[in-house]
Design a protein around this nucleic acid. Structure first.
Lengths: 117, 117
DNA sequence: CTCACTACTCAGTGTTACTATCTACCAGTA
DNA sequence: TACTGGTAGATAGTAACACTGAGTAGTGAG
């Protein structure tokens, strides 16, 4: 992975984490593991925790502290209504973006077809 | 359009501009117009020019100054070999990302289907 | 000269992901 | 007690990027 992937993740990683949380509540360490299972293998733990702080401050998730058997208490994040709305908007924006990129890619693999007038 | 779109553009706008240049050489003002025609209607001109400076400094494009009939001389940008390589890698990275996001979206719209454990 | 369009430049700002480091709890080992 | 390793989270500093807003400069119409 190069720098491109890192830059592309900006604004997307947040949606990805919210999507993971929409499936079921989770805590930071767990989310990091899930991200890796989803193919996002290079995500630093520090990145995830910083992101969680952000979405918490924006009120997109509810937080609950739960004691752990194997370490310090876990902060379990649950997607709330606002977070769900934000996630829906994320998917809409993502769909728009992919649509445009696909058109651009098709036009590129082909040669030249446009009518900007 | 909200803040989400802005953040998602990071790392993507660059690829988009390179893709536009891969179809034919163009200059800044023209690229801005093309972006808008492609659906990226909210891109600020300043953003495009800054991006062009960046890709020029990285040696992804060749630049030629061409006199204009209606204003100051144009800086015409042409994708070079290095830029083409970079663009190819961009599309590969993009494909990987869309694949992962699609999986995530499917898993989300459905309910629960996974076996990482 | 002023206005409008074309064309490019630059300083400053906010957001984001990465790196590296630190705190803290528990179990196994010496 | 002290050391190691896995679990769990917090934080300071850095690099990259898109946006805002202003400015410079050339051409043609009024």
């Amino acid at each position: 992975m190069g720098k491109q992937a890192t830059e592309m993740l900006k604004g997307i990683l947040e949606g990805v984490v919210l999507a993971i949380l929409s499936r079921r509540p989770a805590y930071g360490y767990d989310i990091t593991a899930r991200l890796r299972a989803q193919g996002f293998s290079d995500i630093a733990e520090g990145t995830v925790y910083a992101l969680l702080v952000r979405i918490e401050q924006r009120g997109l998730v509810d937080v609950e502290k739960v004691p752990s058997e194997k370490g310090p208490p876990r902060k379990v994040y649950t997607l709330n209504g606002r977070g769900q709305e934000y996630l829906d908007e994320f998917w809409r924006t993502w769909a728009l973006l992919t649509e445009r990129l696909e058109r651009l890619h098709d036009a590129g693999t082909d040669d030249d077809t446009e009518g900007e007038g």
